[in-house]
């Protein structure tokens, strides 16, 4: 069993950075949802905010690693133009476009994935900043609206990453980077 350098990078992009981001989301969402002074003690709020800072900080890092490795390492292999007479299986974009039954994996799935993915790090960093800036105060009732706004931005960041991740997995199934 041998993985090529391209397969290793593709796995790092999607199955390590991207998947870890998606898995971390639930912990962050639960932490944000339950951050209420009526539910948690003062010490509990401090502990929860510290945990949220670490979780969203790691998620922000993972989301940037995912989009940067995707855009600058994996995507160039995907979109490379094949030389005359080349085996199209080694050129995923051209392989998909050559078959009318598969072309939508590029014209719709990849075209959307490559752009929507970048919304995720932007929104995750905004959430991270708000958690750092407002800290334990977010548990107070007077910041209830802001807390809900953060939850919605966090869900949107996950949704953007989820769309990109899902299409990434499906495109890789249709035309893997070898």
């Amino acid at each position: 069993m041998v993985l090529t350098a391209r397969e290793i990078w593709t796995a790092l992009h999607g199955m390590v950075f991207g998947a870890a981001y998606l898995l971390a989301f639930t912990a962050g969402l639960v932490g944000l949802y339950s951050l209420r002074e009526s539910w948690v003690t003062g010490k509990g709020i401090i502990e929860r905010i510290t945990r949220l800072k670490w979780e969203t900080g790691i998620m922000a890092l993972l989301s940037f690693l995912t989009v940067i490795s995707g855009t600058y390492i994996v995507y160039p292999w995907y979109r490379a133009a094949p030389p005359e007479g080349a085996n199209l299986l080694e050129y995923p974009r051209s392989f998909l476009l050559a078959d009318p039954n598969l072309s939508a994996w590029h014209t719709f799935a990849m075209e959307w994935k490559e752009h929507i993915a970048w919304f995720s790090p932007i929104l995750t960093v905004a959430v991270l900043y708000l958690i750092f800036r407002y800290g334990p105060a977010l548990a107070q009732d007077k910041y209830k609206n802001l807390r809900w706004m953060i939850v919605i931005l966090f869900i949107l960041s996950f949704a953007a990453a989820g769309v990109a991740g899902l299409f990434g997995a499906l495109i890789t199934k249709a035309a893997p980077i070898l």
């Binding site: 003062g42 929104l123 905004a126 708000l130 334990p136 105060a137 107070q140 802001l146 706004m149 931005l153």
Partner: peptide, 24 residues
């Protein structure tokens, strides 16, 4: 807990949110 009495202005939150929208 001191954080319970301290009020943080909403401006920094507004800047973080709107700029994310502008980036998108």
């Amino acid at each position: 807990m001191s954080a319970q009495t301290k009020t943080i202005p909403s401006g920094p939150a507004a800047a973080a949110m709107i700029s994310a929208g502008i980036g998108g």
